[in-house]
Design a protein around this nucleic acid. Structure first.
Length: 550
RNA sequence: GGGCCGGUAGCUCAGAUGGUAGAGCACGACACUUUUAAUGUUGUGGUCGUGGGUUCGAGUCCCACCCGGCUCACCA
């Protein structure tokens, strides 16, 4: 587009349009709006576009009444949730005698017109309050506006609280104003929006139609706030470390790759913040945490989204046992802060976060073994027994494999599993009494892994050996094996205080606390394939040309 | 990536064996000054996910593809 074309476009599209303020012409309303439906000679509109066009045409009618179809600021006195919180138990007589004046804004969720009066439900933050509009009590102009309103429009009302004959708390409207026009059909009022694809793609519609969704994301915010508050209270400071990393590490996963143009280098979206956070521990940030996204280029499922939120924290001079105690405390308080109770329903289950069981991985295998021939502790220590029951190369990998197949799904109540084999724990410190095992634990609930923690390996030479072991595994074809990170080794060479570190999956914990069976129900915009052309710009262009002459 | 299930009006859903595509909500018109899934009368609304094929005839049967869900694999 040339500069002249751009100038012309600006002239055409953004000339201020004539705007009627405070005048109301009765003749305007004698023209039924529907006659405009097929005024264009060319092909008839689709039903949805017809509805869109009808609603668009009301912009003119709204403006003719002296309102803005897309209004400006509105000085409300209360939010709808605030009114409900304070007055939902107040008796009708008390409301009548005290005459509580309120001014609120909200989206029209239902509308019931009855001749010269009517009711509507306004929604704000997932909560609804009824308003009652009576012709006698509002101006002629406001009544005309009331008659023009569509479901989904956003309006402001001013009036006083009362209870209807059936006892519902409502606003008796004295003044009415228009704030924003809805142009599209709203989801069905009774069933709400059920189509999961639309729910995830158009989360705004899901939020409008399904109040539970708003609640779930409010709970998610409480989960994060609770962790943050608890950690800060213990002297942890919050940091942000790189999401774009030249070397990825801190977990076993395949990364996303991106490119920086000016530097002409490939970068990886981080799979974990771990190695950066531990550099900070080396630097003297002795209690540090980060709540942010990790990216893993792997499958998508009800428990996995390619980007997910993790809390990671590190505490110098602590070990994994300190973290077990801390984890139990953190989770109990998060459940309390987010739901008001340490026991929460999850599907058919009730999860109790007030106490967390602990097993070593070997104990768990003995305890939860599926089928006959329950192994003994001697069995699960025996490399031969292990390799008979799993097809992995090393005893440690076999143990983990057996654990995952036999135990994971049995870990319904919040449970800590500790003592992980060194082969699968390249960054964890070995157990002093048994070098094949590390002082590491994972937290499980509802059969899902929700956390991972260990005493951090701070011996640079041992870390060097671990990296080299990982490189050997990579040679062998393990795509998720760790890379060598020499800057991290260098940091360890300056001496890192002994420390415990932990990662907790925020999305999964939120699933448990919101009774969500899919991670997509606790991520506002989960990754989906792109949906293809939408066509709404064309509708706007056509209706705009027809009704606004531009 | 594999297996299973699904895609019909703007939304929620019916459509045995192949024979003119339905309901409720929403939307338009009329009535109605405390309703609440408001109500009554009435009307409009569809390329049945897309593309091929079989057939006199396909929403329905066959093939391919697209999108989604569940599940397995992988992972947290």
């Amino acid at each position: 587009m040339t500069r002249d074309e751009l100038a012309e476009l600006f002239q055409r599209e953004w000339q201020p349009s004539f705007f009627v303020v405070g005048r109301y012409d009765n003749r305007e309303r004698e023209q039924p709006l529907s006659i405009m439906k097929f005024s264009r000679e060319d092909s008839p509109l689709s039903t949805e576009q017809e509805l869109f066009d009808l609603r668009f045409s009301r912009i003119n009618a709204i403006q003719a009444l002296g309102y803005r179809a897309y209004g400006q600021r509105f000085d409300f006195s209360h939010t709808i949730p605030a009114i409900l919180a304070v007055y939902s138990a107040t008796a009708a007589e008390q409301l009548d005698s005290s005459r509580v004046p309120v001014k609120v804004a909200g989206r029209i969720q239902t509308i019931r017109r009855m001749g010269k009066a009517g009711f509507a439900h306004l929604q704000q933050s997932g909560e609804r309050l009824q308003v009652y509009v009576k012709k006698d009590l509002v101006s002629e102009r406001e009544w005309a506006l009331w008659e023009l309103l569509d479901l989904g429009d956003i309006i402001g009302v001013e009036g006083y609280l009362f209870r209807t004959r059936t006892g519902e708390l409502s606003i008796h409207v004295e003044t009415l104003t228009f704030l924003s026009k809805n142009l599209l059909g709203m989801p069905e009022k009774y069933h709400g929006l059920e189509d999961v694809e639309i729910r995830y793609r158009q989360r705004y519609l899901d939020l409008i139609a399904n109040p539970d969704v708003h609640r779930a994301f409010a709970t998610r915010a409480k989960v994060i706030a609770s962790f943050r508050r608890q950690l800060e209270a213990r002297g942890f400071i919050e940091v942000e470390t790189p999401m774009m990393q030249p070397l990825y590490g801190g977990a076993a996963a395949r990364p996303f790759v991106t490119h920086h143009n000016t530097l002409d280098i490939d970068l990886y979206l981080r799979i974990a913040p771990e190695l950066y956070l531990k550099r900070l521990v080396c630097g003297g940030m002795e209690r540090v945490f980060e709540i942010n996204r990790n990216f893993r280029n792997e499958g998508i499922s009800t428990r996995h989204n390619p980007e997910f939120t993790m809390l990671e924290f590190y505490q110098a001079y602590a070990d994994y046992r300190d973290l077990m105690d801390l984890t139990a405390e953190l989770l109990k308080n998060v459940a309390l802060d987010a739901t008001g109770s340490a026991t929460v329903p999850y599907g058919d289950l009730t999860l109790d976060f007030s106490s967390i069981r602990r097993f070593t991985m070997r104990e768990a295998v003995c305890e939860f073994w599926k089928g006959p021939d329950k192994p003994s502790m001697d069995n699960v220590r025996d490399p031969e027994w292990l390799s008979r029951h799993a097809g992995k190369l090393t005893p440690g990998e076999c143990l983990v494999d057996i654990f995952e197949r036999h135990c994971e799904e049995a870990l319904v109540q919040p449970t800590i599993i500790h003592q992980y084999p060194v082969e699968v724990s390249p960054l964890a410190k070995q157990n002093p009494d048994e070098p094949g095992m590390t002082d590491r634990f994972e937290v499980y609930a509802a059969g899902m892994e929700i956390g991972n923690a260990f005493t951090e390996l701070n011996d640079p030479d041992e870390q060097r050996r671990r990296f080299e072991m990982q490189l050997a595994m990579k040679e062998r074809g393990d795509e998720e094996a760790h890379q060598m990170d020499e800057d991290y080794l260098r940091a360890l060479c300056y001496g890192m205080p002994p420390a415990g570190g932990e990662g907790l999956g925020i999305d999964r914990i939120t699933m448990l606390l919101t009774n969500s069976k899919s991670i997509r129900d606790v991520i506002l915009f989960p990754l989906l394939r792109p949906e293809g052309p939408i066509g709404i710009a064309g509708w706007l262009r056509e209706s705009s040309a027809k009704h606004l002459g531009k």
